[in-house]
Computed example of a mutant assay.
Amino acid sequence: MVNAQDEPSFVMPLHGRRILVVEDDYYEAKELACLLARAGARPIGPVPCCEDALPLLALTPDMATIDATLRFEEPCAAIVDELDRRGVPFLLVTGWAEAIPARHRHRPVCHKPASDRQIVAALHALVT
């Protein structure tokens, strides 16, 4: 991710939004959570797998960012299906779009490497 925190147009468009972060790469997960906090969001997680993400849905996230392939190449289907069932919008942030379940390929995607601006804009578009 490209750091955009010093750009004057990088304001807090996600102010107060609770965003679940599901990403198995430790460094990418921490960077994404920090980006969301700088954009005014309240990150939930990050967590590396569906097993850890599902219980966090009790915290009623407003939206989520999900990597399409998780720890040990676990598909994201379990968490995206549950988010869909609950009506929680989500953004797929992935380097492997082919791993997105066919029933969710119409969902918004940021292809890695994505810039901070792209991720924040895509999340903001989920709720506007």
Rank of each mutant, 00 (worst) to 15 (best):
1 M>S: 14
1 M>A: 13
3 N>F: 06
3 N>T: 01
3 N>K: 05
4 A>E: 06
5 Q>A: 13
6 D>V: 07
9 S>T: 13
9 S>H: 14
12 M>W: 00
13 P>L: 15
13 P>R: 13
18 R>I: 00
19 I>Y: 08
20 L>P: 00
21 V>T: 04
21 V>E: 02
22 V>L: 11
23 E>Q: 06
24 D>E: 07
25 D>V: 13
25 D>M: 12
26 Y>C: 01
27 Y>D: 11
28 E>T: 12
29 A>H: 04
30 K>H: 00
30 K>G: 00
30 K>R: 08
33 A>P: 02
37 A>T: 13
38 R>M: 09
40 G>S: 11
40 G>K: 08
42 R>P: 00
46 P>Y: 00
47 V>E: 03
48 P>F: 06
49 C>M: 06
53 A>V: 08
53 A>E: 08
54 L>G: 02
55 P>M: 09
55 P>G: 06
56 L>P: 04
56 L>Q: 10
56 L>S: 05
59 L>Y: 05
61 P>E: 06
65 T>F: 08
65 T>E: 06
66 I>Y: 00
67 D>Q: 11
68 A>W: 04
70 L>A: 09
71 R>L: 14
71 R>I: 04
75 P>Q: 10
75 P>E: 09
77 A>H: 10
79 I>T: 14
80 V>D: 13
80 V>K: 01
84 D>K: 12
84 D>I: 01
86 R>L: 15
86 R>Y: 13
88 V>H: 04
89 P>M: 09
92 L>I: 15
92 L>N: 03
94 T>F: 01
95 G>V: 07
97 A>N: 04
97 A>K: 12
101 P>F: 03
105 R>C: 10
108 P>I: 03
111 H>N: 12
113 P>F: 11
114 A>W: 06
115 S>K: 08
115 S>Y: 04
116 D>L: 01
117 R>V: 14
118 Q>P: 00
119 I>M: 12
120 V>N: 03
121 A>Q: 15
122 A>I: 03
123 L>H: 06
124 H>T: 08
124 H>Y: 03
